[in-house]
Design a protein around this nucleic acid. Sequence first.
DNA 1: GCCACCGGTGGC
DNA 2: GCCACCGGTGGC
Length: 364
Amino acid sequence: MEATLQPRSLKVTIKLKRDKNVSDSSNTTDYLNNAEGERHVSDSSGPVGTLNTFCEDQANFISAERGKKHGTINEGNQTSESSQYQLVLYDPAVNGVGNSENAPDLINCPPPLRRPHPFSDRTPRVLPSVGAFTVQCANCFKWRLIPTKEKYEEIREHILAQPFLCETAREWRPDISCDDPPDITQDGSRLWAIDKPNIAQPPPGWQRLLRIRGEGSTKFADVYYVAPSGKRLRSVLEIQRYLNAHPEYMQEGVCLSRFSFQIPKPLQENYVRKRPARPALRNDAGDLGFKGYLPPPEVARLTWVSTDVDTDLQLSIPALANDHLEAPGSKRRRRPSPRRYNDDLVYNNNDVNVEEPHLHRFDA
DNA sequence: GCCACCGGTGGC
DNA sequence: GCCACCGGTGGC
């Protein structure tokens, strides 16, 4: 089955492929260097277009095919030879112009650090990992593989103002044009996620990590920022507190507007477990409304929608979604107390008006 | 004790 | 239904 994004211009898509047994891999060499060596995608937004990241799930399979050996895991650094931890990456040197649908070349990826699922009675999760980044041409709507995470983030940061075109890819593929076949298509073989556009690149020395949760989770992914010190921060509030505690970063120009915790959206419906309807906390009389409250429907426990672990999911993240217009810090916090930072939130992208791209589901 | 991962809540 | 946030849990 395939899902398509209706291109309005370009979309930022993250294509994810499911990881077989391990957690994750990231996709670029950059990923390889990420301090955590985890499965995550960092995202940033780019020009008008769609960025796409896909998780290659078959890392093991492919590596097996290549007869590679497992190597030692070297946390925080590039993995050794372990094919198991290799990522499927787009290698411009291998994928020449017109080399559409070529399997991305394998590149060593960080070792999986993922811990086993905490609930032993639950089916072990097979977490997807980002296998590659793709951007959709605003002109021909073909997907182009982006060679590195950094390039992807760079494109994404200005995707609205600077739509991605096939010609843009000439930076790493000199002869590429819209006449060439797409690098990749949404053929249902992978998990696709549509990324948000115009996400600022992380400040120098910082890493933005995107960790895709297993199917059936309550949310699709988590974004973390890793400070130069290695400290992992998981919300704007935590960033704010960290910056307050380390004014040196602020002096370097690091501000909240450089951070975005927006996560991509999976193209696959039901990848994220639906939240059961919440009973009213209070009725008109002002008391707790537990009367008549029924236990959550079975649906609430349906955590494993997909039974075929070999099937990759396709996720897409609309680069032109409107929701990016709202600054992450503008929403009401659960704890209203320290909110001064909201005043400081300035999201460069917020003044951009974009149309929401249409997502199409189509059959395989 | 740390931390990755996940669940769940309040608010919209 | 989505988002932001953060607490809980269990493996290490």
